[in-house]
Amino acid sequence: MSGIASPGSKMPRSILFMCGMNAIRSPMAEALAKAALPKGTYVASAGVRQGERDPFVDVVLDEIGLSIGRHQPRTLEELEDDYFDVIVTLAPEAHHKALELTRSMAVDVVYWPTPDPTVATGTRDQIVGAYRAVRDHLAGLIASRIAGRE
């Protein structure tokens, strides 16, 4: 499947991004998608487990003029809505959980393997570089697979 909103299909009205702890990848994807998609598209993020906010996310989003605001990591159980047109999973753990939860639902679950930048070591610049790589990876996927821009 090349895109979520492929030619001839409708743009999803609601998208959930899921990762392990809703601390890095999924909130970053949420912010990027909100900036790239039409205003009427509902975008949310959640994690399989409870996580802690990561300050490097703020650093790399601020570089491109975006913010996650006062976002605090939340689990699936803490979501206000539980129906989405598409669930985009960014980590294996989240993908397995999403497939398990949606077995009896008409929801598309799409897996975008995304590296965990917290495994990066080295200088602050090298670590921030790993977060930038994740941001750019997600921005490219959102542009090409959801927003329909190549």
Rank of each mutant, 00 (worst) to 15 (best):
4 I>C: 12
6 S>L: 15
9 S>N: 02
10 K>H: 15
12 P>T: 08
12 P>C: 08
12 P>F: 06
15 I>D: 04
15 I>N: 01
16 L>I: 00
17 F>E: 06
23 A>V: 04
26 S>M: 01
27 P>K: 03
29 A>R: 01
34 K>I: 05
36 A>E: 07
37 L>K: 02
37 L>W: 05
39 K>A: 15
41 T>V: 15
46 A>H: 06
47 G>R: 06
48 V>I: 15
52 E>W: 15
54 D>E: 15
55 P>V: 09
57 V>Y: 05
59 V>N: 11
67 S>Y: 13
70 R>F: 09
73 P>Q: 10
73 P>L: 05
74 R>W: 03
74 R>Q: 09
75 T>D: 11
76 L>C: 02
76 L>S: 10
77 E>I: 04
77 E>P: 04
77 E>K: 14
78 E>G: 03
81 D>L: 15
83 Y>W: 13
85 D>G: 08
85 D>Q: 01
87 I>Y: 02
87 I>A: 00
91 A>T: 10
92 P>C: 06
95 H>V: 08
96 H>R: 14
96 H>T: 14
97 K>V: 09
97 K>N: 11
97 K>H: 14
98 A>S: 00
99 L>C: 09
99 L>F: 14
100 E>T: 08
100 E>W: 02
105 M>T: 14
105 M>P: 04
108 D>Y: 11
109 V>S: 14
112 W>I: 00
114 T>Q: 00
115 P>F: 14
116 D>A: 09
117 P>L: 02
119 V>G: 14
119 V>M: 09
123 T>H: 02
124 R>K: 14
125 D>Q: 07
126 Q>A: 15
127 I>E: 07
127 I>C: 05
128 V>S: 04
129 G>C: 07
131 Y>F: 14
134 V>L: 05
139 A>R: 09
139 A>E: 03
140 G>I: 11
140 G>R: 13
141 L>F: 05
142 I>P: 01
143 A>K: 12
145 R>D: 04
145 R>S: 11
